[in-house]
């Protein structure tokens, strides 16, 4: 790979650091320590606190409620129907956005990989939504586009003689999904486009010479090449999508009812609207476990990549 042949000449000298004169031993501990210690604190302290609080009766509004709660917070959380609605919504939202962003992102990447006039400009414009802060994209969609009276979509519906859709009342979760997908399609496009550009031209030409048609090339050369980047996109997106928050806060606040309530938003509500530290911490532990199931696979894939 990148560590190709020219280095082999130097390799023996590097391998044995027993040559005191040639290779001064570098003590890497002081270089690594700040980063490692900070991340260690960042990882352990909040996690330990969440675990501790999740076993406490602790409400910031009612200081008289205190003491050890054992598993009561968890039991209370598990018996709350809102939790299961939120878990269901979270899975729907994450799954839907994943499928949409990878499918549409693949098509976009394939299109933008072709040669056409203004291709470079098109590439820039197509990935721009990824850099838009979440509160801005949520508000632009909610007001300028999806507003049931003044929005552009309402006007388009009227053009076709259809009644305007009140998006966030009738289809709250779906509407949030559209906004989030709009932010993440460019991410998938960007990654997959980069992967496409590294596709071996010789391989493509060989396939052409063999008389492979477009469909065959796509199926037997291009898509297999994109498989790994797609899984990486899926896993990285999952990590971020599991904490979707601002888009919901700005549009529906989880409503109407619990229809667009997700796990992060539910925990936020328990914590900063009900001030129930114990309950919110139990929810936090639940969210951490959920994320770690995904993380396990992501970390394994990337670690495997490091070996190549």
């Amino acid at each position: 790979m990148t560590m190709a042949s020219p280095r082999t000449a130097a390799a023996p000298a590097r391998g044995r650091s027993a040559h005191p004169g040639r290779r001064p031993g570098v003590n890497t501990k002081p270089l690594l320590a700040p980063a490692v210690v900070l991340l260690l604190i960042w990882m352990i302290v909040p996690l330990a606190m969440t675990l501790w609080f999740s076993a406490q009766r602790y409400n910031l509004l009612n200081p008289r409620v205190s003491g050890f709660a054992g598993l009561r917070n968890y039991r209370y959380l598990m018996s709350d129907p809102a939790l299961w609605t939120a878990v269901g919504n979270t899975i729907l939202l994450v799954g839907g956005v994943l499928v949409a962003s990878i499918a549409i992102g693949t098509v976009m990447a394939l299109l933008l990989d072709q040669r056409f006039p203004g291709r470079n400009l098109a590439r820039l414009l197509a990935i721009a939504p990824f850099f838009v802060m979440p509160t801005v994209s949520a508000l632009v969609w909610k007001n300028l586009l999806m507003h049931p009276v003044n929005g552009l979509f309402a006007w388009i519906a009227k053009l076709f003689g259809l009644p305007p859709v009140d998006w966030f009342t009738s289809w709250p979760l779906f509407s949030i999904g559209i906004i989030v997908a709009w932010q993440w399609i460019p991410f998938a496009t960007l990654i997959l486009l980069t992967a496409l550009q590294s596709l071996d031209q010789e391989q493509m030409e060989a396939a052409l010479i063999d008389g492979a048609r477009d469909g065959q090339r796509l199926r037997y050369v291009i898509l297999p090449h994109l498989y790994r980047p797609m899984t990486i996109v899926a896993m990285i997106e999952t990590i971020f999508l599991l904490s979707i928050f601002a888009e919901i806060l700005v549009t529906t606040s989880g409503g109407p009812g619990d229809q667009s309530m997700t796990l992060p938003f539910l925990i936020y509500k328990i914590a900063l609207l009900d001030w129930d530290v114990g309950g919110a911490s139990a929810g936090g532990v639940f969210a951490i476990i959920l994320a770690n199931i995904v993380a396990f696979f992501l970390v394994r894939t990337i670690a495997h990549n490091l070996e190549r």
Binding site: A35, L39, W42, M43, V45, P46, L47, M49, T50, F53, I239, L242, S243, F245, L263, P264, I267, Y268, A271, L272, V277, A280, S281, G283, G284, V285, A287, I288, L290, A291, N292, V294, A295, L298, V299, I302, A303, L306
Partner: peptide, 21 residues
Amino acid sequence: VWMLSTKMMPAVGVLVPLYLL
């Protein structure tokens, strides 16, 4: 790989302790 794994903590999971800290 360990550094990468610290990214996996969902923000909302540590909202309460961070807020209190």
